[in-house]
Amino acid sequence: MDNNTQNILIVGVGGQGVLLASELLSEVAMMRGLDVKKSEVHGMSQRGGVVSSHVRIGAKVYSPIIPYGQAEIVMSFEQAEGLRAMDWLAKDGRMIVSTTRLVPTTANFGGLGYPDDPIAEMKKKTKNVIAIEADKIANELGNPRLINTILLAVASPFLGFEKSVWEEAIKKLVKPKFVDINLKAFAQGSKLAEASL
């Protein structure tokens, strides 16, 4: 296996902006002249299902899917979805998770319920859990749909691309109307990242 490949898994629920986040990350890698593959399956994503996007960056990438246990970063926009993505997290990998809880109707009907504290469960399995109240920060900024950008900013120091490249990617890919608020969200997330280092 090619050990020089950087693997990042981004997960969440339909409508949370998982695909935009992986698009931004891929764009940044591409601007830095690296090979990139990213993979996700759409179709059902609009209807409240799980959305996951695999991003692989390196000199030459083959499989667009990350093998189990090889993601150095897992970003989860929802607590329990982070738990579902644990299989991909590398032993010394980092789990960056928003404290957002989205409980589906199906979890209300007997059987398997929504876990009481998914983040505590994660901490039992890995030491590097960074939990961020991204929904709270997003609401303070005035738009609940910023969890993706905030988490990307928190992850950015571990990804090794300069801040200016991220800003350039945001300007290129985000709808013009939402560029400013996304730049603000990125700045907020970066502050948190510095604090957590």
């Binding site: 799980v50 189990y68 644990m86 199906t106 059987g111």
Partner: peptide, 19 residues
């Protein structure tokens, strides 16, 4: 071969639903 360590059947499903 790296095995999945977390059993996803322990977790509630999140199937697509009518909006």
């Amino acid at each position: 071969v790296a095995e999945p360590g977390y059993d996803p059947t322990q977790l509630f499903p999140r199937p697509p639903v009518l909006c």
